[in-house]
């Protein structure tokens, strides 16, 4: 190995750290951790969650930067393959996260559209990014025109949007608490005598999603 002393210009971790310290004050490891958490949450939550595009963009930037560094390595260098694998893993993480969101947007398009419109009219933060929202609009439009064509023989007597597909927010999720949370209401679907549960830091439990949806969105707990 003639070029083992290459490590000077391939100190990826350090270089990234420097670059990020300027604007985000996050180490690459922290960014990856955030991304992993967002990915897991998105993967296990039945409904779509508020987007984490600052993390996505940050990680995408890092991937590009790391790839540039790898390009500069000679192909004989064994570290190249190891770094390449790492980059591939990160890319899978981001892609899988985005794919999961797209899948949810497609499956619950009308439901999400309704919720997003409500959020816009109330002036709240939107859950979708601009480009996701655009995709949602175009997707609904494409379905609309398809259905219109196949039912063009008659005046439409029933709107396909009248019974939209909605996510099952009562499904059960595994979660781990990041901090102490008191008095989480276990909603059993009946109004009388709801049980309360306190979460210790680091405790894990199975619970119905709608009981903890807000905690997930706030970031007090995360899904596993």
């Amino acid at each position: 190995m003639e070029n083992l002393n290459l490590s000077d210009d391939l100190d990826l971790e350090n270089a990234l750290q420097d670059e990020n310290d300027e604007d985000e004050q996050l180490t690459p490891a922290e960014v990856i951790e955030l991304m992993e958490e967002a990915w897991l949450n998105e993967k296990f939550a039945p409904e779509i969650l508020p987007h984490k595009f600052d993390v996505v963009e940050c990680l995408l930037g890092q991937i590009t930067y790391m790839e540039d560094n790898i390009q500069n390595l000679e192909s004989k260098d064994f570290r190249k393959t190891i770094h390449q694998l790492e980059v591939d893993r990160l890319r899978f993480l981001v892609c899988s996260y985005l794919r999961t969101r797209i899948e949810k947007i497609e499956a619950y398009c009308n439901h999400i559209m309704k919720q997003e419109s409500e959020r816009i009219s109330k002036g709240e933060d939107q859950y979708l990014t601009e480009s996701e929202f655009q995709f949602l609009k175009d997707f609904i439009q494409s379905l609309d025109s398809h259905f219109e064509k196949v039912t063009s023989f008659t005046v439409v007597t029933e709107d396909w949007k009248s019974q939209p597909v909605v996510p099952n927010v009562h499904s059960f999720v595994f979660l781990k608490s990041k901090q102490e949370v008191e008095g989480v209401i276990i909603d059993d679907g009946r109004n009388d005598e709801n049980d309360l549960v306190d979460l210790d830091k680091g405790s894990q439990l199975i619970i119905s999603y709608n009981s903890v949806a807000n905690l997930i969105k706030k970031g007090d707990v995360h899904l596993i």
Binding site: G61, D88, S96
Partner: peptide
């Protein structure tokens, strides 16, 4: 269209379907 709008250079979501 969507994939092009993500990030600076866009992402390709069609590939990497399984974890490497």
């Amino acid at each position: 269209q969507y994939m092009r709008s993500v990030g600076e250079e866009g992402v390709n979501l069609w590939v990497d379907l399984k974890p490497p």
